[in-house]
C-alpha cells in the first residue's frame, strides 16, 4: 500500500480552510474521516496535489438539536456519534439507523455523515433517509454561504454540487412533525456487514384521511439517489393499506433505473426496490401512527 504524494494542511478555522482551498486550487481535496478518500488514493483513483484536513476545525464537529430548528449535523461529526446521539436516536431513529448501518465499527469511528454524502456514491447509506426527511446542506466558501436542498446535491456517481472553493459545513434536518414516520431499509449480498446493493428511505406524514405527504428515495438504483415520484403519487392522499403499499413498491420498481455491477444484477435490484419500498412504507406508516 502506497499513497500518492501530496501536500498536507490542517487549518484550525473555517476561514483558514477556505483560504487554503482558494490558494491550492483544483488539485486540493478536503479530508474529513478519510475512509473513502484514502481508499481511492490507495487504489490510484485519486491523486490530489494537496489535502486539507477538516477535523481540526472545532466548529465543524457539533451535533445540535432544537425542537423548532431541527437537527444540525456538523461536517466532521462522526458516524458513530450520530448513531449514538441521544436526540437523534429519539427524534430521528432512521437517521441513527442509517449511520449505524454504514460500513463497520472502525469506519464509523472515523467517517462522517457529511463525507458519506460528499463522496456521492449512489449506494451511500445516509442519503435516502436524509433526502426523505427533506434535509438541506449548508455550504460555505470564502465568498459566501448557501443552503441547498439535499435532493439537488448529488450530480452523478462521485459528483456533488460543491463548486471549487466550497465546503459542506453542516447538514440540517427539519424537526419531525407529529404524524410523521420515517424508515430506512437496505439489502446487500453478504449477510449483515456490507455495502448496500439497494437502499430505500421513506418519510410519510399521516393525517386523518390517510397519508397526506410522502417522500420516497432509492439508493444504488440510479446514478444518484433518486426520488420515486410515481410511487409517491400512488400513496399521497390515500390510506396506506397493504394494497396501496404493494402498488407503490411496484411503481418504485418500475421507475428505478439500476445497473448490473459486481454487487448485484439490475434485475435483482429492481425486485428489491419493490420489496424494500413496501417494507419502508409499512414501517414509516407504523411509526407515524405511533407519534
Amino acid at each position: 500500500m502506497t499513497l500518492p504524494k501530496f501536500e498536507y494542511f490542517a487549518p484550525e478555522s473555517l476561514d483558514e480552510a477556505q483560504q487554503l482551498l482558494l490558494d491550492q486550487g483544483v488539485g486540493a481535496h478536503l479530508l474529513a474521516g478519510g475512509t473513502d478518500l484514502l481508499v481511492k488514493m490507495n487504489h490510484g483513483l485519486l491523486k490530489p496535489a494537496s489535502v486539507i484536513a477538516l477535523k481540526h476545525i472545532k466548529e465543524l464537529e457539533a451535533i445540535t438539536y432544537d425542537p423548532k430548528e431541527g437537527l444540525k449535523i456538523g461536517a466532521t461529526a462522526l458516524l458513530a456519534d450520530v448513531a449514538a446521539h441521544a436526540d437523534i436516536r429519539k427524534h430521528y431513529p432512521a437517521i441513527a439507523a442509517g449511520a449505524h448501518e454504514t460500513a463497520n465499527v472502525q469506519i464509523r469511528n472515523m467517517g462522517t455523515v457529511a463525507g458519506n454524502l460528499c463522496n456521492a456514491a449512489p449506494s451511500a447509506d445516509n442519503a435516502p433517509t436524509l433526502l426523505a426527511m427533506d434535509a438541506e446542506v449548508e455550504i460555505k466558501s470564502a465568498t459566501g454561504e448557501r443552503r441547498l436542498p439535499l435532493d439537488q446535491f448529488f450530480k452523478g456517481p462521485g459528483q456533488n454540487a460543491l463548486a471549487s472553493g466550497e465546503i459542506l459545513t453542516a447538514i440540517h434536518v427539519p424537526a419531525p412533525g407529529s404524524g410523521e414516520g420515517v424508515s430506512y431499509q437496505h439489502i446487500s449480498a453478504r449477510g449483515k456487514v456490507d455495502i448496500s446493493a439497494v437502499c430505500v428511505g421513506v418519510m410519510v406524514h399521516m393525517a386523518e384521511n390517510g397519508c397526506d405527504d410522502v417522500r420516497i428515495f432509492l439508493g444504488a438504483v440510479a446514478p444518484v439517489p433518486m426520488r420515486a415520484a410515481k410511487a409517491e403519487a400512488l400513496v399521497r392522499g390515500k390510506q396506506l393499506t397493504e394494497e396501496t403499499i404493494e402498488a407503490a413498491g411496484i411503481a418504485a420498481m418500475e421507475e428505478s433505473q439500476p445497473i448490473t455491477d459486481v454487487r448485484s444484477s439490475a434485475d435483482y435490484r429492481k425486485k428489491m426496490v419493490a420489496v424494500l419500498t413496501r417494507r419502508a412504507l409499512a414501517e414509516a406508516r407504523d411509526r407515524a401512527l405511533k407519534r
Binding site: A189, R190, G191, K192, V193, D194, I195, V262, R263
Partner: peptide, 14 residues
C-alpha cells in the same frame, strides 16, 4: 471484485 468489500467473506455476524 478485488477487495474485501466486494469479495464477500462471512463476518462474525453471519
Amino acid at each position: 471484485n478485488t477487495n474485501f468489500l466486494d469479495y464477500k467473506m462471512p463476518t462474525a455476524m453471519d
